[in-house]
Design a protein around this nucleic acid. Structure first.
Length: 915
RNA sequence: GGGCGCUUAGCUCAGCUUGGUUAGAGCACCUGCCUUACAAGCAGGGGGUCGGGGGUUCGAGUCCCUCAGCGCCCACCA
């Protein structure tokens, strides 16, 4: 502590150097031997790998701060605390970025060809990939960087193949032609999770389909029987009515369905309909999927463009007719007049053509959920297509059980139900993607018809011996590789000490958005391939939103750049601000238009810590510090109080961390440091620390101060690592005590020193209320700050006034008092009664407005009387006394007595004033 | 259509699991202070019928029912 510290914290001056020192000190690196040889208990978090192309946004800031807080805390607890970093190749997202780049150059991906395109992506990823990991360092993330992985690394590719082939061998991966979600812009299949429904205001059109001549009699009798959906056109033809929200799909209709036992239409089952615009004859079939209560009770069936219709066709044998091209234009199967039209133009054209023929029966407003591509937001088109799927039901069983039996816990707990509901209703997962960037599907096709699914690229067909094999052109859904992340990062399927030691991990921290995409699938894969869960605690934090409650996003332009926040206010300020708002289960809102005030709280706190540390270091000086135990006899009330509060703060912080109550940890420590250490302790010991103070009392204060700051910095370190580390390293150290090498590994306070002392806390509380009351009276009567006053103290519990005598010096300083007397003053004065019954009277002849003082006292008496009355009413209630716990009743009695006492003292005083 | 969550000070939110001091915090606001750690600060203060209604209870912000408003998730009603 030789150099002067700046009066204002400059994070840029300390943060980069500290981070570098930690990294070089090897504190982030955890080899397997740390566990296997040292016997330390592991604590493992595997990072949710951000997309390689990502830049750090405030959501990452929050998620990674949460993880870092947990990792740093456990590290200080002596755990082998490992945080594995890495990035995800993010199939569609990354491919889209490159495609946009190409578009800017006037190119399309086909101009390059697959190989060149993939090369180009690798090049891009090589240049910018991992930028986000570098950015994580700026916020202080203490990852084991030596373990950084990428989901497309060679050995992770081995893992992906092993899983695909192994699932195939277990009949859990299959290929088939089904209706899948198709993005006509990305030109790829999507999983159900990747098709995000969005409430949209659309229309429901009612269309008339003419029936064949042969069905006329059946139609007439149905109409006469009251079937409203059946009618007669002007030209005499009979028609039926169907409804749709997507009229263009009618071009692909291959049937009309009714509920099997729907009496209205029994006669029509088997009859033909003449599909308008196409002129094709399509049959009326019976299928249980139809809800006879809805609409006309008749449904147009478009098997190639609707999932339900596809299933109806499967049951009834209706034809599949694809009328669209991959980019969602009307195609081959559609009547010539419509070919080449975009689906939405075709919708208008179809409606116009139908209207011309008098076949549009009506249109009504209809809100429906329209699926959009989660990457490019294009409306997803259900499409008949041959794809690879994972059969999920068998995989879900152990993953569901793990939640039910509590092996895995969710914080906040309500996500447990959401997770279980999804698992219970799980659908098969479409995993093939018509993209170039990703894990290529390890399947080869031979001209002889053989399909080869292999871990290693085959050179010849095992059936016909041909070497003319073609690999499946598709890649796997990006989540197929990220679901293996908790064990693929440790080298699986190779056996390794890392895997033995660090799997399973402990906490998975992420946003709820990817609960199904990722978290659920990791759990399933963990059970399938490791036989146990990949982690036991799932912590789902809130979303960062702007002041209007909108999610922060690039497209809305309402984001906050966390690197700018770090640059301007420091990583500590950002971390504290985010964590202090991260109450379990709630979103965080920050004002993107006023970043300074959004992070002011964190910045101010970091600065407060800095200044308190600066003051302490200056006051402590270089002289040796005595061990805390050796100064116990010389301690003042505030020293004992401070140590007692320290122990309370430590145990509360630990308890909150264990329950992921990070918001409580942050606020609790904020209050402890600012409200107790700074506002009270430092003020109380200021004079005792001066060189001219009595040696014994000075040394007791010095030892206590060093102890409390050392411990407070440890408690604060996980949240605000930089400012605490900088100050901690400069703290003088008690003689004979062992000094940890760095704050980052200093043992976490255990709060078991036996410093808690309720009597001390109560006495201190009396003393604090005395000071606050004097200050309040001074203010109330307008006594200038500079003016010293005299104070008379009366009454209070036994020992109260004696205690004050011991604290006279600080009392005089903190309350700006120059005389304290234990007697009643002769003249009038400002009067107050303390909670413990003690009375304060400040003689202020000439200053006091007697009338005002009376009014004030009357108001106070009234307030107290009201309270006492309430309490007495409760005490008079036999049921209360009988039912309430003993201590509650006792508290009420004490309260009544205490307030009654205060009131009567005021009354006495008031009488005196009035006389 | 199901499921879940939210509604507490001007703003953002704690507190509800396990009912029991006079309901808290940060920011904002008002007043006085550049008191040699800190004006990004210090000291003091104002501000809430805990969304409406009903119920259980000696006692409800907390538990139950109900209504209203907001939000999220899931779902194949054409």
């Amino acid at each position: 502590m030789s150099e002067e510290l700046a009066p204002r914290l400059d994070p840029r001056a300390i943060e980069p150097a500290l981070y570098k020192a930690w990294e070089e000190g090897g504190y982030f690196h955890v080899p397997a031997s740390a566990v296997s040889e040292d016997g330390r208990e592991p604590y493992v978090i595997v990072i949710p790998p951000p997309n390689v192309t990502d830049r750090l946004h405030v959501g990452h800031g929050l998620n990674n701060t949460v993880q870092d807080v947990l990792i740093r805390w456990r590290r200080m607890q002596g755990r082998a605390s490992l945080w594995v970093p890495g990035t995800d190749h993010a199939g569609i997202a990354t491919q889209n970025v490159i495609e946009r780049q190409l578009a800017a150059e006037g190119l399309r991906k086909d101009d390059l060809g697959r190989e060149k395109f993939v090369e180009r992506v690798w090049e891009f990823v090589g240049e910018t990939g991992g930028t986000i990991l570098e950015q994580l360092k700026a916020i202080g993330a203490s990852c084991d960087w030596s373990r950084t992985r990428f989901t497309l690394d060679d050995d992770l590719q081995v893992a992906v193949r092993e899983v695909f082939v192994s699932l195939y061998e277990k009949d859990l991966v299959y290929r088939g032609e089904y209706i899948i979600n198709w993005c006509p812009r990305c030109l790829t299949a999507l999983s159900n999770e990747e098709a995000e429904g969005e409430e949209t205001q659309g229309s429901l059109w009612h269309l008339r389909y003419p029936l064949s001549e042969a069905a006329a009699d059946a139609a007439r009798s149905a109409a006469e029987a009251g079937a409203e959906a059946i009618g007669q056109l002007e030209d005499g033809r009979w028609y039926l009515t169907v409804s749709t929200t997507r009229p263009e799909t009618m071009l692909g209709d291959t049937g009309v369905a009714v509920y099997p036992s729907d009496e209205r239409y029994q006669a029509l089952i088997g009859a033909d309909v003449v599909l308008p615009l196409s002129g094709r004859s399509i049959p009326i079939v019976a299928d249980r999927h139809v809800d006879p209560e809805f609409g006309s009770g008749m449904v147009k069936v478009t098997p190639a463009h609707d999932r339900n219709d596809f299933e109806i066709a499967g049951r009834t044998g209706l034809e599949l007719l694809d009328v669209m091209t991959p980019d969602a234009k009307m195609g081959e199967g559609a009547p010539e007049a419509f070919r080449g039209l975009d689906r939405f133009d075709a919708r208008k054209a179809v409606l116009a053509a139908l209207a011309e023929e008098g076949l549009v029966a009506g249109q009504e407003d209809h809100t429906l959920s329209v699926p959009h591509c989660y990457r490019c937001h294009t409306v997803v088109e259900p499409r008949l297509s041959e794809q690879w799927f994972v059969s999920m039901k068998p995989l879900a069983e152990p993953a569901l059980e793990a939640s039910r039996d509590g092996t895995i816990t969710f914080t906040p707990s309500h996500w447990k139900r959401v997770y279980e509901h999804w698992m219970e209703n799980i659908q098969d997962w479409c995993i093939s993607r018509q993209l170039w960037w990703g894990h290529r599907i390890p399947v080869w096709y031979c001209a002889c018809g053989e399909q080869i699914v292999a871990r290693v690229d085959p050179t010849e067909c095992p059936k016909c011996g041909s070497s003319d094999l073609e690999q499946d052109p598709d890649v796997l859904d990006t989540w197929f590789s990220s679901q293996l992340w908790p064990f693929s990062v440790f080298g699986w399927p190779k056996e390794s000490e890392d895997l033995d030691v660090f799997y399973p991990g402990h906490v998975l921290s992420t946003a709820p958005e990817i609960l199904f995409f990722w978290v659920a699938r990791m759990i399933m894969m963990g059970y399938e391939f490791q036989g146990e869960t990949p982690f036991t605690q799932v912590y789902l934090h809130g979303t960062v939103r702007d002041m209007k409650g909108r999610k922060m996003s690039k497209s809305l332009g309402n984001g906050i750049d966390p690197l700018r926040v770090v640059e301007e206010f420091g990583a500590d300020a950002m971390r504290y601000t985010l964590i202090s708002q991260a109450a379990v289960g709630t979103d965080i809102s920050l004002d993107h238009e006023d970043v300074e005030s959004a992070f002011a709280n964190g910045r101010n706190f970091a600065n407060k810590i800095w200044n308190a540390g600066r003051f302490a270091l200056m006051s402590l000086g270089d002289a040796p510090v005595r061990p805390i135990a050796s100064v116990a006899d010389d301690m003042a009330l505030e020293d004992r109080w401070m140590l007692s509060r320290l122990e309370l703060a430590a145990s509360e912080a630990t308890r909150s961390l264990e329950r992921f109550r990070l918001h409580d940890v942050a606020e609790g420590l904020y209050h402890f440091f600012w409200g107790e250490i700074c506002d009270w302790y430092l003020e109380l010991v200021k004079t005792r620390l001066r060189p001219e103070a009595d040696e014994a009392t000075r040394e007791a204060a010095r030892s206590t101060l060093v102890t409390v700051l050392d411990q407070a910095f440890r408690l604060l370190h996980p949240i605000v690592p930089f400012v605490t580390a900088e100050l901690w390293s400069r703290l003088p150290w008690p003689e004979g005590a062992e000094r940890p090498e760095d704050l980052i590994i200093a043992p976490w306070p255990t709060a078991d020193e036996g410093w808690r002392d309720e009597d001390v806390e109560r006495r201190m509380s009396d003393f604090q209320s005395l000071i606050v009351e004097v200050r309040r009276l001074r203010k109330e009567y307008g006594v200038p700050d500079a003016q010293r006053i005299g104070v008379h103290l009366l009454g209070g519990p036994d020992g109260f006034t004696d205690g004050i005598v011991g604290q006279l010096a600080v009392f005089e300083q903190l309350a700006r008092v120059d005389r304290v007397e234990m007697s009643a003053p002769s003249g009038v004065g400002a009067h107050a009664v303390l909670p413990n019954g003690g009375e304060i009277i400040i003689p202020l002849e000439g200053v006091i407005d007697v009338e005002r003082e009376r009014t004030r006292m009357r108001t106070e008496i009234e307030r107290l009387d009201g309270l006492v009355m309430g309490v007495e009413k409760r005490l008079a209630n036999d049921k209360f006394v009988a039912n309430a716990p003993e201590e509650v009743v006792q508290k009420e009695r004490d309260k009544a007595a205490q307030m009654g006492d205060q009131a009567s003292k005021l009354r006495e005083k008031l009488a005196g004033l009035e006389a």
